[in-house]
Each structure stands twice: as structure tokens, then as C-alpha cells.
Design a protein around this nucleic acid. Structure first.
Lengths: 191, 191
DNA sequence: CTTGAATGAATGAACATTCAGTCATAGGAG
DNA sequence: CTCCTATGACTGAATGTTCATTCATTCAAG
């Protein structure tokens, strides 16, 4: 008769970090505030993470993974590539619309010095579900000759940044934007 | 016989802020460190700015203006629109390559809560040299039916983010990217 | 002499991190 | 089954540091 769900305090701390960074930025988010938001004592965060930086890293990696999974989960491998692209895009859109705090956390973490450190350490490539997916590999093949990170920025950057905004994305905006992003990374019949 | 250039300490403080945020992020950049980097006393920053937030705002606005001016300065009003776009893009690229710290500062400020506050206060529209330019207005007219901020993100976002990166942009990457960005915001002969 | 920029030591608040102690649980001994 | 002990998550007050901000004072220029 264990309790139906033992509280995962490490997760509570990570999610509190996401919420506070989304609202107040990295400056203005203290460990004290995180612990309070998570409903946990100050010391508890340090049971699970050696330092604030380590907590931020772990959270960043978790959020990135979540986005990657959401992207892949919505792709039907039988569809044409252009269709697969729209499915991925929409998968990410829905995931981030369901978790707008993660979008806001992500854009800030991605453009902060944390991102550089994280990519050196944890996200080399095989750790990233997107990079190691054959579905994505086929899509990248179809695209313009540009480094993968640049292609990601062109293809998926706008969804992430827009869901992080108060504006949000309605159906018609989504449709127009998917087309714009596809056009950017693809160059069907030119030159 | 005034000294050839009286030191503009307010500017020195702003530029120190940019350098430190570029290296260490907003967290990890203290007023003490800024003053030291600027070669002034701690109190001096407060002679010119009422608070750290006000200093950040002023710096953010200055950097944005600089990018806007660099964009416009390189446009030849007689060229075809597609050409004007490339000129603007290249103008921004060169400006940020000459000041990589500003690129790194900009991406961080733009995705932080500071950006939202700044846009409420100082950058309504008529303050933004880009938004009030007829050249830009004609370009926006030519583009896909999307909100101006989204068009900016698609058209110029990649330059800013890439110059903020260690990777940098070589000539061939620039050419390919300008085409990609133009394709994104424009939809000449489709449907 | 007056004015206002510039100074940097001083201040109190807020910060990240620590740690001595509490408590719930698990497992072995009886 | 009951008791005892060991384990480790959890706590929050305490620690020393660093922070943003202040202000009495100096200084240069008019």
C-alpha cells in the first residue's frame, strides 16, 4: 500500500525552476524562490543537485528532450516528407502550447551561456533524440545545404519563439508559418 | 582647450554591460563588475542611471537602434526590392560582426523579460528607426501576410543569432542564408 | 564660491550553499 | 508479529559571500 504517487521532489524543483525563469528570467530566480515555489525546503534541492548550475543543466536537457520527443511522436513515417515536416512542426507547437513555461524557459536558456556549456557536456549528438532519428536525417537530406543547427533554427526556431510569446499561434498563422519555414529550408525548383 | 574627447562615462558603463553580459549572461553580471570593467567607481553608474534595470533598458535600446541604423544605412533606395533585402541583411551582418558582443547581448536581452518591458516602454514603434522607415514599409508590403514582428524574426533573426555564435558567417553561408530568409518571407509564384 | 560629476567605503538585503538534526521507512533479529 | 537499527531523503536556521544601492566627501570647471 505505497501511496499512489510518491512525490518526486527533484522533478518538483526542476518544474519550479522552469516556472520562475519563465516569469522572472535567470537573474531574479533564486534557489530560495525555487524551493518555495516547489514546496520544498532550501536544502532539498541540494540533495538532488550539487549546485544551481547543475540544476539548470538537468532542467535544460529535460526540456530539450521533451521537445524532441514531441516532435518525433507526431511524425507518420509513411507520409511524404513535406507532410512529415508539418507533423513535426505541429507536434512541437502543441507540446509548447501545452507547456508555455517551457517555451519561455527554453528561449532564455538557449541564448544564455548555459546553452554553450550544455552542448559541450550533455548534448553532443547521440543524446539528442532528434539528431539520432532516421526520420530527421531524411528530412535534413531533403533540405538546403546548410549546417544542421542552422536548419533547425530556420525550421523550428519560429515555433519555439512564438509559443514563448503572449501572441500565441492561431490556426491560420500556423499554416502560413509552416509554409514559410519549409520554404526557408528547401529550395525545390530554383537556379 | 577642452580635452580632445571628454570621456563619456555613461557610454563606458553601457559598453561594459554589453561586454559582460555577452560573456557571463545577465545572471553573473553585477554592478560592481560592470563599474570595474568600465574603469569607473561603483557610484558613477548611479549618477547616470537610477538603477541596474534602467541601465539595461537604455543599453538595450541603444543596441537595437544601432542595428536598425546599420540596416538602413546600407540600403540603396534605387535597387530592386530583393536587392534591398540583401543589402539590409548584409548591413546587419557586418555591423554585428564588427561588434559580436552586441549580438550576444542582443539575443539574451531579446529573449529575457527585459524585452517585454522595453517594448512596452521605449520601443512602441515611432522610436524604432526600422519600423518608421518607408524603405522597410515597402519591403514588408512585398512580404507574406504575417505580423511584422514575425517577418523580422524570419528575415533577420538568423543573422543576429548566428553572429552571436562562435561559428560565425562566411561568404558562402551568408549567400545561402540570405536566399533562405528571403524565401521564408516571400512567396512569389506558389499555389 | 557654486555646481554637479565622480568617488569608493559603507550598508543592509538577498544570495548560494551547508549542516546538524528530524523523520519515515526498510530489513534483520528475536 | 514486534522491536531495533541503519539509511537516506528531508528540513530550515545558520554561514559567509556577493549584491544593488547610498552618501559623505573630493575634485574640476565655470
Amino acid at each position: 500500500m505505497t501511496p499512489p504517487v510518491a512525490i518526486d521532489r527533484a522533478e518538483a524543483v526542476r518544474h519550479a525552476l522552469i516556472r520562475l525563469v519563465a516569469r522572472d528570467g535567470f537573474h531574479g530566480t533564486s534557489m530560495t524562490a525555487i524551493a518555495k515555489e516547489a514546496g520544498v525546503a532550501t536544502g532539498t534541492a541540494y540533495v538532488h543537485y550539487a549546485s544551481k548550475d547543475e540544476l539548470v543543466m538537468a532542467t535544460y536537457v529535460e526540456v530539450k528532450h521533451g521537445v524532441g520527443e514531441a516532435a518525433l511522436a507526431s511524425v507518420d513515417a509513411g507520409s511524404p516528407l513535406r507532410e512529415q515536416f508539418a507533423q513535426m512542426w505541429t507536434g512541437v507547437r502543441r507540446h509548447l502550447e501545452a507547456h508555455p513555461d517551457r517555451a519561455r524557459f527554453l528561449v532564455q536558456a538557449d541564448s544564455s551561456p548555459y546553452a554553450a556549456i550544455a552542448h559541450e557536456q550533455a548534448l553532443s549528438a547521440e543524446d539528442d533524440p532528434l539528431m539520432s532519428s532516421p526520420v530527421v536525417a531524411r528530412l535534413l537530406d531533403e533540405m538546403v545545404d546548410l549546417p544542421p543547427e542552422v536548419l533547425f533554427d530556420l525550421a523550428m526556431g519560429p515555433v519555439v519563439r512564438l509559443t514563448a510569446t503572449s501572441r500565441g499561434i492561431d490556426e491560420s498563422l500556423a499554416e502560413t508559418l509552416i509554409e514559410a519555414c519549409w520554404r526557408a529550408v528547401t529550395d525545390s525548383g530554383s537556379r
